[in-house]
């Protein structure tokens, strides 16, 4: 992910994303779409996107990718688990700069995803909206005057939009404050979940804050609510960090330098420990205690040590029994320059 740079390690906010769900009027939704029509639909949208002027989209033939390559796309958040597991003809169209990924025939016919590093949700929305306008000139969407964009699942209807911030919240997690935050978010039609699995507790302390509701408010209103609530959560995380440092500076320093020591010297490390240690390292960098010793952002490091990405970079023939050794080697190389 070339656009994640070490400069992004200055705030609990890692990145933001906007997803727009759209469907053709003329085709059935996924659950009732026959394979030949699904293929026709994927080719039609693929053709439209690749034929656009002044854009640089590439078609990724997901059906021909190996399992490890598909897993890697998932770990970089370019595709969803549903697209990876799907049995129907499906596809992925990505922009050359890696900021737009359009999943074809996932839960809906078209899912435009736009990602930007840091606090840039407006930028991500403008890019997604622009791509949506380009597609809309060529096809007729399933749209209803009163219900908005019609989607396969009624939970996405209306704007079809899911806007989210990915945030690193180690202190709020440690202080047991997350449940209260989730409850407050839920009352505002918003939600927060750990990015690793469905759990409310996520190893690596990385969470995604997003709108749960999609109908009844405009895109701008949804983004406004998300910005406002994310700002409050992030400020609380930073205040809690500073209060903890002030209360026990040596303990804080000890934790950060221990994590750095483990990561720079380990000879084998499983994914859970690696995520935990890298999370502490990021906290140390964001709080200003240490400088990021790597030339990639800490979050990129966290993604690169996942199973699929590691296998792709260290050799697909790597046996699973040696994956923890390979992970340790990779982390040492990155952090020791």
């Amino acid at each position: 992910m070339k656009w994640y740079t070490p400069e992004d390690d200055t705030s609990p906010v890692i990145s933001c994303r906007v997803r727009l769900a759209r469907n053709f009027k003329k085709y059935n939704f996924l659950s009732k779409l026959q394979a030949p029509q699904a293929e026709e639909m994927v080719n039609e949208v693929g053709g439209i996107l690749l034929g656009l002027k002044n854009t640089n989209f590439q078609f990724v033939d997901i059906m021909k990718k190996s399992n490890v390559e598909k897993l890697s796309l998932l770990e970089y958040h370019k595709i969803s688990l549903d697209l990876l597991r799907g049995k129907q003809p499906r596809g992925l169209v990505s922009s050359a700069d890696d900021t737009i990924h359009i999943m074809l025939n996932e839960e809906d016919h078209i899912r435009i995803q736009s990602i930007a590093p840091g606090k840039n949700i407006q930028k991500a929305y403008i890019a997604a909206d622009h791509t949506d306008n380009l597609i809309e000139q060529k096809i007729e969407y399933a749209f209803d005057e009163s219900l908005g964009y019609l989607t396969s699942c009624p939970s996405n209807t209306g704007t079809g939009m899911r806007a989210s911030y990915m945030v690193h919240l180690p202190l709020l997690e440690k202080m047991g404050k997350l449940q209260n935050i989730v409850n407050s978010l839920s009352r505002a039609g918003m939600t927060m979940r750990g990015i690793y699995g469905e759990s409310s507790d996520s190893i690596g302390s990385i969470y995604q804050i997003s709108n749960q509701c999609s109908l009844g408010r405009s895109e701008e209103e949804i983004i406004g609510i998300l910005e406002n609530l994310t700002n409050q959560i992030v400020e609380t995380e930073m205040e809690t960090t500073q209060a903890n440092i002030k209360r026990a500076p040596i303990y804080f320093e000890d934790q950060v330098y221990r994590a750095l020591g483990v990561l720079q010297n380990c000879r084998q490390i499983d994914i859970k420990e690696a995520r935990r240690m890298i999370s502490v390292l990021r906290l140390g960098v964001v709080s200003g205690l240490i400088k990021n010793p790597a030339d990639i952002s800490i979050y990129t490091l966290m993604m690169n040590i996942e199973y699929g990405n590691l296998k792709l970079s260290m050799g697909v023939d790597l046996p699973d029994s040696e994956i923890d050794v390979a992970r340790a080697t990779y982390i040492r190389n990155v952090l020791n320059g």
């Binding site: 005057e145 908005g148 509701c213």
Partner: peptide, 11 residues
């Protein structure tokens, strides 16, 4: 599950 039952967003 939604804020309302009437679409107020993009057309």
């Amino acid at each position: 599950i939604q804020w309302g039952t009437s679409h107020r967003g993009k057309i």
